[in-house]
């Protein structure tokens, strides 16, 4: 059964992966990191991505029509994608059986990265991380 480090190593195997992290979006804490971060500081990147995740998770504009209930099997917001000139940043929310606010973060180089594959794999990893 994978722990945080195995999950991050798995994410780093994706084509174009430059950095990955498991982050708590309420506090901005990096619970685990791998590879590099765009700012050169994983902790700063975690705090910044957490702010983005919090807005997506909390603002009503992004909630599905059936409401933003986080106790369902699926999180109301699944993932976030930021595309920049040279990168993709993918944030995948993680649903846990205890109260938490966690997401997986992956930084991909835009030329080598495969966004569709990354989204599918991150979703699987988010499940494996908490369900084994």
């Amino acid at each position: 059964m994978p722990g945080i480090d195995e999950c991050l190593l798995e994410a780093m195997k994706l084509p174009g992966a430059r950095g990955a992290a498991v982050v708590d979006w309420t506090s901005g804490l990096a619970l685990g990191t791998a590879g590099e971060s765009q700012s050169g500081d994983h902790e700063a990147t975690a705090a910044e991505t957490a702010e983005l995740a919090r807005i997506a998770a909390e603002y009503q504009s992004f909630a599905p029509a059936d409401g933003s209930d986080w106790s369902d099997d699926d999180t109301p917001v699944e993932d976030l994608i930021v595309s920049s000139r040279d990168s993709y940043h993918v944030l995948q929310f993680v649903r846990t059986t205890f109260d938490s606010s966690v997401f997986l973060y992956l930084w991909l180089g835009r030329t080598e990265g495969n966004l569709a594959l990354a989204r599918i794999r991150l979703r699987e990893m988010a499940r494996q991380l908490v369900l084994g």
Binding site: M1, P2, G3, I4, E6, C7, V22, D24, S27, L29, L31, G32, V94, T96, T97, F98, S100, V102, Q128, L129, V130, L131, G132
Partner: peptide, 21 residues
Amino acid sequence: LVDRGHFPEGALELCHLGALY
């Protein structure tokens, strides 16, 4: 907790680290 299958390692790490900090 992990060995008995009550908890996957990842889930326990997430919860425990959260509680620690």
